[in-house]
Amino acid sequence: MDSNIAGIRVDVTEDGYLSDLSQWNKEIAIEIAKENNIELTDKHWEVLNWIQEQVKNEVALSIRSIKKSGIIDIKEFYDLFPGGPLKISTKIAGVPKPKSCI
């Protein structure tokens, strides 16, 4: 379905995740972060870039992969994206959230 984020028309899933990473840009990320009460810092951008790289390389995202990323430890990850860090960081990065079969 269609959505308008930061004045840009994008395709999103029913729960607000971008369907197409190529439509993502920094303004969109800032806007989604704001909705989640997060102001993006350099460290946030570093993590978001890393997440996008993983998805482009078809590597599954999990807390384990964050632990092994070498750019952030898990406590920092929780501090940067409080609540559900994987759920929120993937939304801001414009990639699908980790999911199950149903």
Binding site: T13, E14, D15, S62, I63, G84, L86, K87, K97, P98, K99, S100, C101, I102
Partner: peptide, 12 residues
Amino acid sequence: TPLGGAFTKPKA
């Protein structure tokens, strides 16, 4: 669950 919900796909 480590995921965002008991169900994670919109239709389900």
